[in-house]
């Protein structure tokens, strides 16, 4: 295992200390409770928006804490859902009297831990609404299974919903917007390499020099299927087609498009994938009205990418364009 770390068990704690030092103007990091809280939290009469999940997906979620996005994030151990205590502490810290939205990615662990946290918060009379993101089209949606995973849409949703919350909108409206964004967004990912959980010390799987995994999540897991490595054009096609089909995107519609790196893929390759994505969508007369290319929701040092599309309307564009000032996303101020 080759990593820039000290001891595996200290990875999350030390990374949080580093984050705290770099972004002292934006966030407070409570190393003990393991939460990252917006500097000016709680913002009075604003809905508090929190999220959380395992570490190893940086900049998600801690990098999205700040003006116009999240009020707090709860990072768990690497690839492990945080515990209810963290979520409760974060909920308390951001409750400005207008209630708190929990943005939960659809993983059994995340869902259950957030559920317990919400129960505990309710016991303290803090109004909590949870919304679950489940945008990964690689996994079939079904009532009888754990369902689709929450992946790329989560990032874009946090931005849009955070902007709405910043206007002072009530909890129900903020939650509705979150559901709307989730319903109109889909993602799919692929990997060229596995990654290594620091405490595990070994790659999560082995992949041949000419193989790739299609339909991966964000936890270093193998995908839905293994395939022969092909060119960027074909990879983009493989990821984009199920998204377009599932969203039933039609000619004339506009989307917010994200090409996300899994952590170990250089930007130059992500731009190549975006170029292919643009070509594919142009061929279907779907226009990319807003876009984001880079490492936003990662799987440690895994090489690979994911594509996320969200159907846009004027309202979503407005909140996407609204100012944001977090460690990882910043514009308009």
């Amino acid at each position: 295992m080759k990593k820039l770390i000290n001891k595996p068990e200290d990875v999350v704690k030390e990374a949080l200390a580093g984050m705290a030092a770099v972004h002292a103007d934006l966030i407070n990091v409570d190393i003990e409770q393991q939460i990252i809280v917006r500097k000016d939290a709680p913002v009075k009469n604003k809905v508090g928006v929190i999220s959380g999940g395992g570490s190893g997906h940086e900049p998600m979620h801690g990098g999205y804490v700040g003006y116009g996005m999240l009020d707090a994030a709860c990072p768990g151990a690497v690839f492990t859902s945080p515990v209810p205590d963290q979520m409760l502490a974060a909920t308390r810290a951001v409750n400005g009297g207008a209630g708190v939205l929990h943005i939960v990615k659809n993983y059994t662990g995340d869902v259950m831990n957030f559920e317990m946290a919400a129960e505990l918060a309710a016991a303290e009379d803090i109004e909590v609404v949870s919304i679950v993101t489940n945008d990964d089209v690689a996994v079939q949606d079904s009532l009888y299974t754990a369902g689709r995973r929450g992946v790329g849409v989560t990032v874009l949703l946090e931005k849009i919903v955070g902007a709405l919350a910043e206007t002072g909108a009530p909890l129900a409206q903020v939650a509705d917007m979150a559901r709307q964004v989730n319903n109109h967004g889909r993602s799919m990912g692929m990997a060229l390499t596995a990654c290594t959980v620091p405490a595990a010390g070994k790659p999560t799987f082995e992949l041949g020099e000419d193989e790739m995994e299609i339909g991966i999540g964000i936890h270093g897991e193998p995908g839905r299927r293994r395939a022969k490595l092909v060119g960027a054009a074909e990879i983009a096609e493989t990821l984009t087609t199920p998204i377009i089909d599932d969203l039933e995107l039609k000619a004339g519609e506009q989307v917010l498009a994200m090409v996300n790196g899994m952590g170990g893929t250089p930007l130059i390759e992500l731009y190549i994938i975006f170029n292919e994505l643009e070509r594919i969508l142009k061929g279907k007369s779907i226009s990319i009205t807003r876009s984001l290319v880079g490492n936003y929701i990662t799987s440690l040092e895994m090489a690979g990418c994911s594509i996320t599309l969200i159907r846009l309307n004027d309202e979503l564009i407005k909140y996407w364009d609204a100012p944001v000032h977090t460690p990882a996303l910043r514009w308009g101020r």
């Binding site: 768990g76 151990a77 492990t80 859902s81 515990v83 209810p84 662990g109 259950m112 831990n113 317990m116």
Partner: peptide, 12 residues
């Protein structure tokens, strides 16, 4: 266990 495990196995 709830406070220290996390993941799926913690709540379960």
């Amino acid at each position: 266990l709830v406070s220290t495990v996390g993941g799926a196995s913690g709540p379960l």
